Simulated scan of single mutants.
Amino acid sequence: MSNYAWLCDYGSHAVANTYGIVVQTPEFDGVELFFIKQKKECHTITDDEMKILETIEETDTKFWRAWKNYELIPQPEMPIKLFKKPDINYSNLPQKDEIFFSITGGYLVMNEKPYNIISQFNLGKTHFSQVFIYDIETKKQLSDVPYYFINIAETFEFLNSNHSKGIKASRYTPEEPLRYIWGVEDDNIVLLEQVKNIKIDLWHDKNLHDSLFFSDRLVQALFDAGFNQKQLGLSRCVIQQA
């Protein structure tokens, strides 16, 4: 059993680009939400449209909260399409070699190559939905490249805050156990030895904001496939010894 795990800092702009893209699920239409919001901002929204907006926003917020809280989103409720906003240059689509990227709402999306490896490992409740990118105005498909929207649904508490570096507490609630990533380097993060007892290969730590941890066995498989540490935004973490 390895004495290491890896932290993926996917929230860093140096690691993953962010695109103005909205999601569509069977439960809510991000396209309709986008255009009705525009009408509201231009003060041209009708009373009936305002009611529609409130309903869609409620469903959208419910989905977003579930995703941000690392809750399991049932497969039938996962995104089915991505739509590029019109205020962004359409030539500025994610490139085929982008490993993963963020979209409006902070959602994480990855391309097919890492997905093919990661999906072979033990992800527990974490799962994906395949999506393509479309033009939000014409509904035309903009790329034939498949992407994978991830629902991270495995959460643990392995962070040893007292012995870790490169993280900080919130200045507003310093008494809370939650920490934020702040310039982490290899071997800065110390995890409790209990992490060795789980068989899950990808998880979020409840006490480290926007954290995504990979098992060493998963990372070694990604390395073997040609990815490198910098591309993946990885920092090696030390597992505390008994």
Rank of each mutant, 00 (worst) to 15 (best):
S119N: 13
I136F: 09
Y115E: 09
I117E: 05
Q141G: 05
E112H: 10
F149C: 12
V109L: 11
P114A: 09
S143V: 05
L123C: 01
V145H: 13
V145E: 06
T138H: 08
S129H: 01
V145F: 13
V109W: 07
D135L: 07
G124T: 03
E112R: 10
E137N: 15
Y115M: 06
F149M: 08
N116D: 11
Y148W: 14
F149G: 01
K125H: 03
P146R: 09
Y147N: 09
D135F: 13
Q141D: 04
S119T: 09
I152R: 06
T126Y: 02
N116P: 01
L123S: 05
T138V: 13
I136H: 09
V131E: 10
Q141H: 04
G124P: 03
V109I: 15
S119P: 06
Q120Y: 02
Y115L: 11
I133M: 02
N151C: 13
L123I: 06
K125V: 00
E112I: 01
F156D: 07
P114V: 04
S119Q: 14
G124Y: 06
K139A: 14
K139E: 14
D144Y: 05
Y147M: 13
E137Y: 12
N151F: 00
E154K: 08
A153V: 12
S143E: 14
F128D: 01
I152S: 03
D144C: 10
